[in-house]
């Protein structure tokens, strides 16, 4: 490996890194919002909306992000819906992630036993108070492992952004290999930058998970 080559490539990777991270976290934010709304619609069996939410979840969980992006970026403009590559990446990731987050949150909500709700009601709490102080925090702590897994999954999925010509880490790596054939150095940097992006999330995620597991229901 040539260290000088590596040094000279770093600025391009840093730039691509920030772009990937920006779109990635923006997409994850969308995923959270979409996921929470659809999970509520399904869990509370809101008429019509729960059906739509259910179909949405099934469709987006059963198709690859790459295909979703192709459809949004190349297909939709034919209907007059045009989005920039960056928005397309964020929206695509958000829609994919929303369906995964919805499942995670819904299964947390579903896991709270009726008796917990009843015991809170028996203490004189109103329904909104029961939801706010009992159901929501318990459901959240039950969903934490799945949410952490989804975060890592979604950050990894950003690696297909290059398909819609976003200059992300993959795009940069492919470009550099094509231009200069410094394959080893480029791949090394590619791995390092993905580790920088994913390792902290993985480590923090593990710690958070442990904390919530400790607080969860006894065996």
């Amino acid at each position: 490996m040539d260290l000088e080559v590596i040094y000279s490539y770093i600025p391009r990777f840093v730039e691509a890194f920030w772009l990937t991270l920006k779109i990635g976290w923006f997409g994850i934010l969308i995923a959270f919002i979409v996921g929470i709304l659809t999970a509520f619609a399904v869990h509370f069996k809101i008429p019509v909306l729960s059906k739509i939410a259910g179909i949405y979840i099934e469709i987006f969980r059963n198709t690859p992000l790459l295909v979703q992006l192709f459809f949004i970026y190349f297909g939709l403009p034919k209907l007059g819906i045009r989005v920039s590559a960056e928005s397309c990446g964020a929206v695509g990731l958000g829609l994919l992630g929303g369906s995964y987050m919805a499942e995670a949150i819904r299964s947390g909500l579903d896991a709270i036993s009726l008796a917990q709700t009843e015991s809170a009601l028996a203490l004189g709490m109103k329904k909104t108070q029961v939801f706010k102080y009992i159901i929501l925090p318990e459901a959240f702590s039950l969903s934490v492992p799945a949410i952490v897994a989804n975060l890592i999954f979604l950050l990894k999925e950003t690696s297909v952004f290059s398909a819609i010509s976003l200059m992300d880490l993959m795009f940069t790596a492919k470009d550099l290999i094509g231009l200069y054939y410094d394959t080893t150095e480029t791949l090394f940097l590619l791995v390092i930058f993905y580790l920088i992006m994913l390792l902290p999330v993985s480590l923090i995620g593990n710690a958070v998970e442990k904390k919530y597991r400790y607080r969860m229901l006894g065996q």
Partner: peptide
């Protein structure tokens, strides 16, 4: 709100304890 008022005055303890785990 009527129920919540009444339930304040009626305490209940369940077979399965139902402490809040969090």
């Amino acid at each position: 709100s009527g129920l919540s008022k009444a339930r304040e005055k009626i305490g209940m303890v369940f077979q399965s304890y139902e402490l809040f785990p969090h």
